[in-house]
Amino acid sequence: MTKTEFPPSIISRPVYGQLAPRPGAFHLFVADGEGAEAVVELFDKADPSLKSRAHILYTAGPNGTDQWDKIAALGANQAQKAASIPTLLFRLARVLQDTPMDAQIYLTGTEGLMGQAERDVMALGFPHVDIQKEHRGSTVRRVQCVHCKGITENVRMDPFQCSHCGLHLFVRDHYSRRLAAFQGVNIDAEDKGQIPPAVERFK
């Protein structure tokens, strides 16, 4: 079961577990923020030979958490720190070109990071059974505005203002893996200007 406690939600929301070492010729880790701790715990549980076949891509979390030191201390065969999630995804695309199909892939950290990495991994045909996900750290959401299609990253408040078209959106509990995003819907379409006070739903 996930260590992050989520409120009851709906069925299109991904379910997260806990990373567990599995046999594989190659072990690819993608992590952000507090996800570093899940990687460290997995290394503690795994056979010591795993690190000679491990490649870790890491970036700081949206809340600023940076545990790169813990990653660097693991002694993995390869490890890089990226400046942001988009730059991490560029590196991931290159690494995946040489990743064998019998690799084990571990994603951990925030939903936005895991969702985008999973999307890119699955687009290359890696079977989802070889991908594990563990949520750690911030629960901020990546949200697509259903009206202008713009993505707003790191949404904490609900409702919030679309960073592209400026409409006030509520965050619907509906998640697209293809977009790696939740759905944002205009909250005052019926009663223009009646926007409830924003509350911090995602931290």
């Binding site: 069925i11 299109s12 929301r13 619907r172 509990d173 509906h174 998640y175 697209s176 893996r177 293809r178």
Partner: peptide, 10 residues
């Protein structure tokens, strides 16, 4: 791209 249970989630 969603499966049957995902697109009916709401």
């Amino acid at each position: 791209g969603m499966n049957f249970h995902e697109w009916h989630a709401p």
